[in-house]
């Protein structure tokens, strides 16, 4: 289809309680940069249940217009209901580009909708620009487990769509005094058209919230921490730093820490200011999830561990000796 407008849409994914997930708000900032170059409006698209707070956030973080689809059937994400709603909106308004957060749901929704629209989708982008020659969005993304970067264009079909990694773009300062045009769309699906059913939710981490994607500092542990108790010094360090605890797959598979903490190809993709890897060898699947961190500190007793190839600070030594001292020193610094 052809674009009816030059508008750029940002899909604002919501939580079950109707609040906005962080990544959508990050992408409003990224979208603003693109809109400034290509023209058009920056539109936040909110789909969810009881979405007032998400709509407010979208405005505060920079949307010129917010399109809202609200309804009970959108409380918990389903492919059928969300794809139906987003597709209907695109048909009606014809945006030129759409940014979607590369969360589990975003990566479930994106291909479904782009395929229905017979247009291109670039997955899991880590940088966005406007191509000088053609004016298309230049989507840059890692491939081959992060060994290669590719810049992709979608020149002939609209909208051009991309999913973008959480944490790559930082949220701008919210401005609560901003106003925006709010458009409410009444789109509903018959429950019989939703072909999946949520039977049970198994929450792994009732005692803490693991927001790795939004974290500024992450302290991660791998097989080198030696066991579930090995995460204790890590947690202490995380506490004094105000950091979130991450993990490599080996520690998750061993049952030392829940999967929600896992960083990497089959875990979360993170981009904190500081990433501290303790006892992690640096397998390609782990690096794929954390290489865009600003500063990487790796602690490993094996000088040849591949993690040191991506680290800014290569700390060679036994983490059981190093971590407690590190924690104590930082405590001292803080007081």
């Amino acid at each position: 289809m052809d674009a009816k407008t030059k508008d750029l849409w940002v899909f604002i994914e919501t939580n079950d309680d109707g609040t906005a997930k962080s990544v959508g708000l990050e992408l409003l900032g990224a979208g603003r940069g693109l809109v400034d170059k290509q023209g058009g409006k920056l539109v936040g698209v909110v789909i969810g249940n009881n979405t007032d707070s998400a709509v407010k956030s979208a405005v505060a973080y920079g949307a010129d217009t917010v399109i809202v689809v609200d309804g009970k059937e959108y409380e918990h994400y389903t492919t059928d209901a969300y794809a139906n709603a987003l597709y209907a909106l695109v048909e009606k308004y014809g945006p030129t580009s759409i940014l979607i957060g590369a969360t589990n749901n975003g990566r479930d929704l994106g291909p479904r909708v782009s395929c229905r629209l017979k247009t291109g989708l670039t997955a899991d982008c880590t940088s966005l620009a406007i191509d000088e020659e053609t004016g298309n969005v230049a989507w840059t993304r890692p491939a081959f487990g992060g060994n290669l970067m590719a810049t992709i264009l979608c020149p002939d079909t609209r909208p051009q769509i991309g999913t973008v990694r959480p944490g790559v773009f930082k949220k701008t300062e919210p401005d609560e005094s901003r106003t925006a045009e709010i458009i409410r769309e009444n789109i509903h699906v018959d429950p019989s058209e939703i072909r999946t059913e949520l039977i049970e939710v198994i929450k792994e981490v009732a005692d803490e919230l693991v927001d790795l994607e939004g974290a500024e500092i992450i302290v991660s542990g791998g097989r080198g921490v030696g066991g579930p108790e090995g995460f204790k010094p890590r947690r202490e360090l995380a506490e004094v730093l105000g950091a979130t605890v991450g993990a490599a797959r080996a520690a998750v598979d061993a049952g030392w820490i829940p999967h929600a903490h896992q960083v990497g190809q089959t875990g979360k993709t993170v981009g904190p200011k500081i990433y501290i890897a303790c006892g992690i060898s640096g397998a390609i699947q782990h690096i794929a999830g954390m290489s865009s961190s600003k500063t990487i500190i790796a602690i490993n007793k094996d000088e040849t561990a591949p993690i040191f190839n991506v680290a800014d600070y290569c700390v060679v030594g036994d983490l059981f000796e190093i971590l407690p001292v590190l924690t104590a020193e930082i405590k001292k610094l803080k007081s």
Binding site: M149, I152, L153, C314, V316, V325
Partner: peptide, 24 residues
């Protein structure tokens, strides 16, 4: 619909500072 405009290898971090003293 998607076309690869270019591919490149990500900038390799070189010269990470090595820190290794006599004891932990």
């Amino acid at each position: 619909p998607t076309k690869v405009k270019k591919t490149f290898t990500p900038p390799v971090k070189t010269g990470g500072v090595k820190i290794c003293e006599d004891c932990g």
